[in-house]
Simulated scan of single mutants.
Amino acid sequence: MGTVRENVGTALTAAGLVAAAPSVWQTVTHITDDTYRAPEARHGAGHVQYHMAREVLITAGAMGAVVAGAVAGPRRERATWRGMAAAGGGFTAAMWSGGPVTGVWAPNRRALATHVASTAGLAAGVLLLRPKRNDR
């Protein structure tokens, strides 16, 4: 059984991952959605869908790294935590990348709430799971 900090960190990390699920599922459904085809795309009409598939696979890897770091428990080494933090940070940064690039932070309020909840849960959880300085 872990410390209160460990337990809260794990719970918040899990909540952040669960909060992200609708956004990830939305991306998964875009892969086969013909409205996400762009006939004028230089690399072919399905190029946008290819990027959606690639994003889903990258997301699966990032979430896997976050889960691996979270389940390591109190024996988590600093290198494991760094990998977990980088994967979680990269995943959440990608959700916010639309704002500076396109001027659209999220397509609707529900998506914005999903982004805020998943970012807050992952950031707080991963931060709480950071090993103390004298740990590994």
Rank of each mutant, 00 (worst) to 15 (best):
A94C: 00
T27M: 05
A45N: 10
T92E: 07
R109W: 09
G61P: 03
D34T: 14
K132M: 01
G69Y: 02
A20Q: 10
T10G: 12
V71Y: 00
P74F: 02
A21I: 03
G9A: 04
G90N: 06
H115Q: 12
P74S: 15
N108M: 04
E77K: 15
M52D: 15
T27D: 09
W25V: 13
L122W: 04
P22L: 01
G90A: 09
E55A: 15
N134K: 15
L112R: 14
A94W: 13
P22F: 05
A123M: 06
T10M: 10
A113Q: 08
A45V: 12
N108P: 08
G99P: 09
G98P: 04
Y50P: 00
A79T: 14
A117R: 09
V71I: 15
M52S: 13
T59Y: 02
L112K: 15
M52N: 14
G88T: 05
A111Y: 08
W105K: 05
V28S: 03
V48S: 10
A62Y: 13
R5M: 00
T80H: 08
I58M: 15
A86L: 13
D33E: 05
K132E: 12
E6K: 12
H115C: 04
Q26W: 15
A19P: 01
K132Y: 02
R78M: 10
T119F: 05
